[in-house]
Amino acid sequence: MLTFKQFWHRLGSPKWFYRMSRPWFVAFAVAAGVLLGVGLAWGLAFAPPDYQQGDSFRIIYVHVPAAFLAQSVYIVLGAAGVLLLVWRMKMADMVLETMVPFGLWITALALFTGAVWGRPTWGTWWEFDGRTTSTLVLLFLYFGLYALRQAIPRAETAGRACAVLAIVGTINIPIIKYSVEWWTTLHQGATFTLTEPPAMPPVMWAPLLVNVVGAYCLFAANLIAQLRNAVLRREGGAQWVRDAVAAEAA
């Protein structure tokens, strides 16, 4: 078995990562497909309707997992920023470069599903309150990371600039989390907390839990797939990449 220290050092080695990561990608992609398929069908057709919101409540099965991921992806980008600035880890720069589009579309999905849920439930598509505004800021941060990368031609400088923006932007994450407690808001409180059982009955939260776990598997599959491609592109000229590409079926 690897010690943690060995594992940590090897994680910084793109070649080692490329060699060991394929089965992990397959496992997470299959798990994501199965869990999200089951969870979405369960939430849409089998879970009971909410006693106040009726069937519009089913939007929760998409909205909450998307909102969880929107924030988690950003935390990972912030952590990658620290790894890049402090340890100059190449893999961290690849994470910062390749995971922005995923964070962007998942945040857009969280905002979109929130708006579509807000219309029948709150009577409005949009309200500039704490939770929605801070999540909109999160979307702009993803746009900012994307634009900053495009704006700086030198890859190393662009990577460092994005790392700084990613780290500074993490201040928004606790603001999103506590926004429903700090300010008066239309938005409901947390569905899942670590300290208390959910207010919903199990028949309602079980499909949500399946989708949340599935969403994190999707995140892992995207992370691994993006990193595998990025490793090949950045190490393009190395002999092991030539061998790997040559061995690939066309």
């Binding site: 979405l40 009726g54 519009s56 089913r58 998409v62 579309w105 999905l109 849920w117 219309r119």
Partner: peptide
Amino acid sequence: MGGHGPYVWTVYLTTVVLL
């Protein structure tokens, strides 16, 4: 969907397409 069909189906179809 108890009158909420357009909202619920919009969300689920968008999600399936994105996935």
